[in-house]
Design a protein around this nucleic acid. Structure first.
Lengths: 192, 192
DNA sequence: ACCCTCCTTGGTCGAATGCCCAAGGCGACT
DNA sequence: AGTCGCCTTGGGCATTCGACCAAGGAGGGT
């Protein structure tokens, strides 16, 4: 078949994957043309053949990651049949996460870079909005009061916990989840 | 009479202030020797006279900012006489904050840089721990259950809200505060 | 008046940066 | 078999980077 074009797309994907790795390891603005090429196992010139600039490559990698993660949230939330289960489902997929894991760092790096890149800011904003919307819908379905603001707080708390975990040890994930459960089950004492 | 040593300290302070500004504007790894010197209004060589490296200057600037902010939290929290007031005091000093304001961005930049600099990680971790501790103490004094985990969630939610605000509009600060109030006043409906 | 210490200047170093380009390769079509 | 188009190579360009340093103030203490 079309070997040249296919291999081209393959190289493109390898560069995107390399970008996601290097953003985490080095920080957004410290990812360079040559290191990208080396990590992807290709010649340096290919970076500017497939992408208009290093920045464009980084943005595309981050947007891809955001879209990919947002696509996963729907199925996860759909399986929950009570408000408490919604939180359990959310938190469960998070407790495996240390705060210094690649995914967390990549997202925080992207958040920051977005304050200096309008296109990236918009794409990440959409991802957050989508996540909030899905979450609010599930909360509303289970009679949680003020679902939109609650969803916003939950989403923010999750990202904040990741941020803090990267810096200092804190209460266990179970203890934090118990606290957050107060948000979705008002009026009842937590069952710890 | 202004001694040479005094002027030297003055220049040092100017460099630290310039660093805090430039970290926000350009991103941690994009702050360079020459831009630092220009912003501080001094010769480029002075950067490496007063500091062993650019990285050391950035770290010191960030740690100073963290200590300064942590020093402010005590008085703010002390004035609150109910659990609800604690939250109001916390949130009030935060609602003037856009999420893209210099202080927020500086801290998130520092958080990220800390994942790659052990000394910075430790200093910021201490600041977070101190904040959590003060907050937990106030919460415990007002009979909030599980004060430590609650304080951790509140602190994380605050940072998370700042992070999200920089990217996308969301519910008003009042609406978010009402949701968080459920954490500190369990069993009572929010008064909106 | 003299040193002595500290601060300051402006330039230089090798290395690394982003981006570009002429030349070559290689499979898919006619 | 020959042409075409896309992908790939490796080097080159001007620029900027962090770090360094010799030389020059400038004031305090003796």
């Amino acid at each position: 078949m079309v070997t040249a074009a296919q291999r081209g797309q393959e190289v493109r994907q390898r560069l995107l994957r390399a970008a996601a790795e290097l953003i985490v390891e080095r920080g957004w603005t410290a990812v360079t043309t040559r290191v990208l090429a080396q990590r992807a196992g290709v010649a340096p010139g290919l970076v500017h053949y497939h992408f208009t600039s290093v920045q464009a490559l980084l943005v595309e990698a981050a947007v891809d990651a955001a879209r990919s993660l947002a696509a996963q949230t729907g199925p996860v939330l759909a399986g929950a049949h009570t408000a408490s289960e919604v939180l359990t489902a959310l938190w469960g997929s998070l407790d495996t996460v240390s705060g210094t894991d690649p995914t967390s760092v990549l997202f925080v790096e992207a958040y920051l870079a977005a304050t200096r890149d309008e296109r990236l800011r918009q794409a990440l904003g959409e991802a957050i909005g989508l996540f909030r919307g899905q979450l609010a819908e599930r909360l509303a379905a289970h009679a949680v009061p003020d679902p939109e603001a609650t969803a916003a707080v939950l989403a923010a708390a999750i990202d904040g916990v990741l941020l803090h975990r990267a810096l200092v040890a804190g209460p266990s994930g179970d203890a934090l989840a118990a606290v957050l459960r107060r948000l979705v089950t008002p009026g009842s004492e937590d069952a710890r």
